[in-house]
């Protein structure tokens, strides 16, 4: 009887140690998952307000992007991310030997810079898709620009063979250096309203790329239903849009007049002679 009690006690102690070890191991696993941002019971995730993997976004900010960077880095993250740096003007040559400079900060719309190469197999789908931007269903006002390395690193005839003429193609090694492009394909999304990059990274296929651009447009408060260039000209007004009519046209005219310093009652609104309208006609 005494031996049975001793054995039972020993067995309980051993099982207790095992259970304690398992609990500790489970706690370690949960803590590790939590640190990775996917912890069970994470209140942030339960609220549905977070996007996982902030570590990938940090990698893009340093320009040291891994080969298979998560495409989610192209979209703005919910958590404050470190600034992605300035968005300089893209200047270089066209495949035809002309000169081209594209400012990414002179409109309110998004500019999608696609850094592609002529000899990159994974770029082929993006050449084809971006060459026909009308089929992509990008948010209205989004400008797509293909940037290859300059004629010193690319064969212009190869680039010209891939250019459709429907989207600007700029050959500029300087742009690759300024945007710290790690390799092709690589994409940078610039918000013209703020003059800053809002995302950069790699997408695996065109559908992902378009989806991420649309999410970025949505996150910045854009409305994909805006037509044509209207989104591009939110800030500056669009007084000459023939599609405007009625109250919308009147509002656009008022906006332009206010921007020019002409307010209700201004004498210039009530010309009496032709010279009031054309002061320099003589």
């Amino acid at each position: 009887m005494i031996a049975l009690v001793v054995v039972s006690t020993f067995a309980v102690l051993v099982l207790g140690v095992l259970v304690a070890g398992l609990l500790r191991s489970h706690a370690d696993i949960l803590r590790s998952l939590h640190e990775l941002g996917v912890g069970v019971g994470d209140p942030v995730l339960e609220a549905g307000a977070a996007t996982p993997a902030p570590a990938a976004a940090t990698a893009t900010a340093t320009g040291a992007a891994p080969p298979t960077l998560a495409p989610t880095t192209l979209a703005p993250t919910a958590a404050p991310a470190p600034p992605l740096g300035p968005a300089p003007t893209i200047a270089g040559r066209t495949p035809a030997g002309d000169a081209r400079a594209i400012s990414v900060t002179n409109s309110d719309g998004l500019t999608l810079l696609a850094f592609l190469s002529s000899g990159c197999a994974s770029c082929a789908g993006f050449w084809e898709a971006l060459g026909h931007p009308g089929r992509l269903d990008l948010p209205a006002g989004t400008r797509a620009v293909i940037v290859t390395k300059g004629p010193d690193r690319e064969v212009p005839s190869e680039v010209r063979a891939r250019a459709t003429g429907q989207v600007p193609v700029v050959m500029s090694t300087e742009a690759w250096l300024e945007y710290q492009v790690p390799g092709s394909p690589f994409f940078v999304l610039v918000d013209g309203a703020t003059g800053t990059k809002v995302g950069q990274g790699v997408a695996n296929h065109v559908g992902q790329l378009v989806d991420l651009v649309r999410r970025a447009e949505h996150d910045r408060g854009g409305d994909a239903s805006r037509g044509g260039d209207r989104g591009r000209n939110r800030r500056r007004g669009r007084r000459n849009d023939p599609a405007l009519g009625g109250p919308e046209r009147e509002a656009a005219a008022d906006e332009v007049l206010r921007a020019a310093g002409i307010h209700p009652g201004d004498p210039s609104l009530y010309p009496r002679t032709l010279d009031d309208v054309f002061p320099h006609r003589s």
């Binding site: 002309d98 000169a99 400079a101 400012s103 900060t105």
Partner: peptide, 20 residues
Amino acid sequence: ATIGAHGITARLPQGFEGRI
């Protein structure tokens, strides 16, 4: 940014874009 082609060059002021 500076662009140049066909015997024409331009140092673009801030906010300008261009083509030659």
